[in-house]
Design a protein around this nucleic acid. Structure first.
Lengths: 246, 246
DNA sequence: ATGAAACCTTGACTGAGATCAAGTGGAACC
DNA sequence: GGTTCCACTTGATCTCAGTCAAGGTTTCAT
């Protein structure tokens, strides 16, 4: 049963209104968008688009998590993007999807047919500008991830993933209280492995190790508590003074 | 001695005119750009910008190669971008540089002071649109590279790098004749290692192995001949039917 | 010529993470 | 209540790439 939250239909109630591609739009522009938008929901595990398929829509993640995944002929797979609420899917001006897009959790997307969206983009600098901003941010994130993939140890990779999830979670949650950080892992061990360029066994071992040493606490398999964020960041190998920005 | 080619001063003679951020500009727009542009040259090995520094210009690579590099406190470094002629450096709307930018070879850049460029971008959709396109392309390239870093073997990584250089070289060169592909490696073994997430010893060994097996031919350390591009692509683990596009 | 500094190659050994394999725990379904 | 399935854990072993070390080339300055 699909249980993704989805209880609004107009943009003014939209939970991602101020972070998505429509963030800078004024009332008139929003109205135009309202005209061409529609919602789609996906269950966890479903494929949103297959690599190589015709892309006839673009859109924003409203709730849930999607992933971009590349696969080699022999089955090796690498996740190349993790799309959280407000992230944009699709590329204006391109016909076919370059990656598989998968619903990692139950997922709600706000979709626009591609053609009208492209037209609207031409006439609405606010949208084009916001999309440029978001794309530049994603490029930064991809490059940060290249350092993780290319140079970090398994333990540092796990710690990096946990701190990214913790950080993005905190930036979406209404308020971040001081003290321990608590969240649910939205990914299976296998999905984490695919993101980190590891095997699921190594992921499991490293999580067990971090737990044994008290860097993280686990309740069940997925519910994580971070007693000391700085300690986790140290394990990730990041500059420990790294800000809480973004 | 600096020997980068640099023998034009106005945009109409510019070798990257039709591929750079100014590609879609009409005559009037070019004239405006002419007003705020200036050239800078760097010798191989020089740093263009340090990570964290104030960025008061943006610009395009005219000739030569620059690299974007991230470094961890303990000295591990990962190259996160390779900038070839026509590629854009800098991020409108951001104050400080997120990575080190290094001149890998002698380098000529066409620079614009950031403030005027940002203003111009606001009033010139052609520039903003082209920049969005280029950023999306770079994002694709970064994600393709994430697969290389996360899932490929050392041999596949080397083959991937060689085929990328071969491909981009071919797309810039005036004509691509059929038959063997020939080019000079613009990177030291160490720079290749930093790009590929390997050590320089492993790079050297894999190149020797590819040479011994006839996948590539070497004259000196840097001059490479690819007798059979398809064979190299196979070694890279890419879909062998992968087009020659871009 | 000689020395020094880059840049590159090759060899021997080591170790982190992959692979192979078995087993646990919990939820769903009959 | 038992079976099945899935996500996960843990152990034993293997292997690819890293590390340490030595030596080779080329270039450039003295």
């Amino acid at each position: 049963m699909l249980k993704a939250q989805f209880d609004h239909t107009n943009c003014s109630d939209c939970p991602i209104r101020h972070r998505a591609v429509c963030a800078h739009c004024d009332v008139d522009e929003l109205e135009e968008l309202e005209g061409i938008k529609y919602y789609r929901t996906f269950e966890a595990g479903q494929t949103v688009i297959w690599s190589g398929d015709q892309m006839n829509f673009v859109g924003s993640v409203v709730s849930g998590i999607a992933s971009l995944t590349q696969t080699m002929e022999d089955g090796r797979t690498q996740m190349v993007g993790l799309l959280l609420p407000s992230d944009f899917v699709g590329r204006p001006g391109r016909e076919t999807a370059p990656y598989d897009v998968l619903a990692t959790t139950d997922l709600v997307m706000c979709c626009f047919r591609k053609k009208p969206f492209e037209t609207l983009m031409g006439s609405t600098p606010h949208i084009a500008h916001r999309l440029l901003q978001m794309t530049l941010d994603e490029l930064d994130a991809a490059r940060e991830w290249m350092l993780v993939l290319g140079r970090k140890t398994a333990r540092e990779k796990i710690a990096s993933l946990l701190s990214i999830i913790a950080r993005r979670d905190a930036s979406i949650a209404p308020k971040q209280k001081p003290g321990p950080i608590v969240f649910d892992l939205p990914l299976t061990r296998e999905a984490m492995a695919d993101y980190l360029g590891l095997t699921l066994e190594t992921v499991s071992r490293q999580i067990s190790a971090l737990k044994k040493e008290g860097v993280i606490e686990l309740e069940g398999k997925r519910h994580v508590t971070i007693p000391d964020m700085r300690r986790l960041m140290d394990e990730a190998g990041d500059d420990s003074d790294g800000g809480f920005l973004i």
